[in-house]
């Protein structure tokens, strides 16, 4: 059964379709959430919320706007960023902005050895084929949840430069990933 059929059945209330959808995607979605929130208990919480919302809003999925896989990854990324922001807002003693986590990871100063090794492996993947300046802005936006203005402030670069780097980086990613599906 195709992914689109699975989501359509979920929209009709088919619980088995939901279980299959979860089994098909959870082990790819979980590491993405983990990469963003960096805490196993929080990541498990977010994972549950993402799939629960997918079940509830399966009827609003529009195949014309992307594959079910992109749909669930997009939801997972958004909820994970929401979680990081909520944690930041709730703990008022934590004064560093959300991006410190990403900066720490990028500088290899944070995370355990396994996480650092994993980040290195990734750089060898599609992201690794991007010029450093483009990789940086995409990581800050996609994994760090920073907006274009926040990235520009953080890197002390003009807003226009940041936007252009994001566009060029994504164009390159599309080329790299579409060439080797």
């Amino acid at each position: 059964m195709t992914g689109i059929d699975l989501v359509r059945r979920m929209a009709e209330g088919d619980r088995d379709a939901f279980a299959r959808f979860y089994d098909r995607h959870a082990r790819q979605v979980y590491p993405l959430i983990l990469r963003i929130v960096r805490d196993h208990a929080d990541a498990a919480d977010v994972l549950q919320e993402v799939f629960w919302e997918a079940w509830q809003s399966a009827a609003s999925y529009d195949p014309g706007r992307g594959t079910p896989e992109a749909w669930i990854f997009m939801r997972a990324r958004t909820r994970a960023i929401d979680r990081v922001r909520a944690i930041r807002r709730r703990s008022e003693t934590f004064v560093a902005p959300v991006d410190e986590r990403v900066a720490a990871a990028a500088a290899d100063a944070g995370g355990d050895a396994a996480e650092r090794a994993e980040d290195r492996d990734l750089v060898l993947g599609a992201l690794g084929q991007l010029p450093e300046a483009q990789r940086e802005v995409i990581e800050l936006a996609y994994y760090g949840g920073l907006t274009q203005t926040e990235i520009a402030e953080r890197l002390t670069q003009p807003l226009g430069t940041v936007k252009t780097r994001i566009r060029l980086g994504l164009e390159r990613l599309r080329e790299v990933l579409n060439r080797s599906p």
């Binding site: 959870a26 082990r27 706007r65 992307g66 990854f73 994993e118 492996d121 992201l127 990613l173 990933l177």
Partner: peptide, 19 residues
């Protein structure tokens, strides 16, 4: 749409982790 698919491709590159 194509950018979202590319970003999904990026996420898919991570080694799977069983939740």
């Amino acid at each position: 749409r194509e950018s979202s698919e590319a970003l999904a491709g990026l996420a898919r590159e991570r080694p799977p982790v069983i939740p």
